[in-house]
Write a protein that binds this DNA or RNA. Sequence first.
RNA 1: CGGGGUGUAGCGCAGCCCGGUUAGCGCGCCUGCUUUGGGAGCAGGAAGUCGAUGGUUCGAAUCCAUUCACCCCGACCA
Length: 584
Amino acid sequence: MIAILKRLTGNGTTMAKMRWSESCIPTLKEDPREAEIPSHKLMLRAGLIKKLTSGVYTFLPTGFKVLKRIENIIREEMDDAGCQEVLMPILHPEEIYEESGRLKSFGPELFKLQDGRKRTFALGPTHEEVITLVARDEMRSYRDLPQCLYQILTKFRDEIRPRYGVMRAREFIMKDAYSFHVSDESLDVTYRRLEKAYCRIIERCGLDFRVVEAESGYIGGNESHEFMVLADNGEDRILSCDCGYAVNLERATASEKDEKRGAPGTGAFKEVETPDQKTVGDVASFLGVTSREIVKTLLYRSGEKNIALLIPGDREVNGIKLVRILDDPEIRFLEPGEIKEFTGGPVGFSGPVGLPAGTSIYADNLIGSFDSMIVGANKEDMHLRDVVAGRDFEIAMSGDFTMAREGDLCPKCASKMNKSNGIEVGHIFKLGTKYSSAMKATFLDDKGKSHPFIMGCYGFGVSRMVAAAIEQHHDEDGIIWNPAIAPFDVILLPLNTNDAEVMKVAEEIESGLHERGLSVLTDDRSLSPGVKFKDSELIGIPLRVTIGKKLKDGKVELFQRATRQVDDIPVGDVLEKILEFAGD
RNA sequence: CGGGGUGUAGCGCAGCCCGGUUAGCGCGCCUGCUUUGGGAGCAGGAAGUCGAUGGUUCGAAUCCAUUCACCCCGACCA
């Protein structure tokens, strides 16, 4: 009840009483062909959104109500965390991206356009540059810090592939916040506070989620966490442990129990013929071993040098780790021709033994568990057995190069981790001085010395959150809104709209609920009952009151969407009952 | 950007391979009557540049070429 009254004070939920016959809620009986996953199908079917063009959507009245409720929860939590709301421009002069150095790193995802005088602008994909310029001019003294500013605004990214409706759109609504600090300690305080605020936002929306360690991507920075709503159709893979640790799969450390791989070395390595056996699986079955005994040798070009990377045969390389460890975003595989020229052998038969002198051989940490290994011989149709690292070739450096997988060990407690899918709704970063240094945004400390701001940034996908909520909470009949973000608190179903008594009771309940601060949708359409039942379940309003044949006995039916619990309530008690359920 | 698929009424589809009346079906929509507790019944009705352009042909939704849009699968991210 308290929650209900509080919500009324926020903007966005002022229209608390609506008649379906007068509303734009275009429901669809059939799945639209363009939609693949449940949330996208349901958003279209329930009349929440309408596509304008690929990755660009209109939020229709019901969808917009949900969006506003989520926005208001975010506002409350951000304000509670001491942040201040601002509104920045969408249109950005291109030069600010030159200044920060992101023109290149963003690449084609930056939406660009020209004005009438041929000046180039970008549509804002995020606002690090804009906010840093605010700080540069307006925050000059350590006395002004720390500060945290946020906004809720439409963002533009020319996504390589828009997908799944508003889940991955080219135009989307994001809450973004930026903080400025004199020290890492101060940044850490705000970072933790925002982390907590994000958890509260998602909890209040009623979603199951994990906070995971993450890569920072092109935003840049050091520490970074993602907020993942768990859902089978999530695009992100995460590993999590019962101890509470969770990590994005692409960042997770590949770590196994200390089981030895390969037979103990039985003397010098020897050549074995492996005609036409090109893949690890081929070679393993041909030689009668498992792929665990084999070592893959991957050849890359980094700068002017060719390098070799060894990883276990049953593992995949993690390209993100490779780029980070070798500090080379341009690194690429050698072409088949280059491999032949470099090693003397064809693709599929490369190995670390006998590579040209001076070749750097990197190895995944797991290579240490091999007593001996099977590798390519750098000759067509030949492999080497009983190869021993350190004896038959030298490893220049070992590191964590492989993609982790389910069953790998938790770095905190060493139990096996489980894999699940998630939808990234939030991402927070410790940026450090990346932008402030590049853009010369500095403050004066208490000794009059100037330093670049230490910054944090905090993104939350508002429109994506709508999709995530549906993806996690729906059934075969439709959406199941959590009461905190439902477009209406209650839907009223007077079945026979020609029956004056039915309509009178419906109007009384409607007014009663309205006066008590609940938002109500009354389905006053003169349609057959089945249609109205189906539609009410499709759009997922938490509570439904049916005014129908039981009215003869002075009763109406109260239906709870989430549990499907049905109660027959005397008309006189219905307001009280609804408030009781709605207040939970 | 590479690979695959689809464009026919507001939505979902058939017709296309094998060219030939007036382009069809279901849902929705409009009018009237009946019906009102699980996607109602009867009667009548409106609605289409067959994605676009060009070609082949006596004749093209159908064959050919070009092009655009959208969806799905791979490398990115809120």
